[in-house]
Amino acid sequence: MALSKQHDLHKRRFSRNLGLGLVLAGFVALVFGLTVAKVSTDDFTMPINEVAD
């Protein structure tokens, strides 16, 4: 018997892991998009301390 035999359980886990992976990737993309949207508005200013540094 092959050590890497696919059990039904692995298939179900794969769907869950793939789904979670896609959700996380989507979340990263969303946070990136939000950051770009926030810093590109006219009223965005850098915090005073960081400007002074």
Binding site: D8, L9, R12, R13, S15, R16, L18, G19, L20
Partner: peptide, 15 residues
Amino acid sequence: STSQTGEAGFGDYFA
């Protein structure tokens, strides 16, 4: 059969 393995799929969490 799913409950015997205790493994829920992605669709179950979505449901």
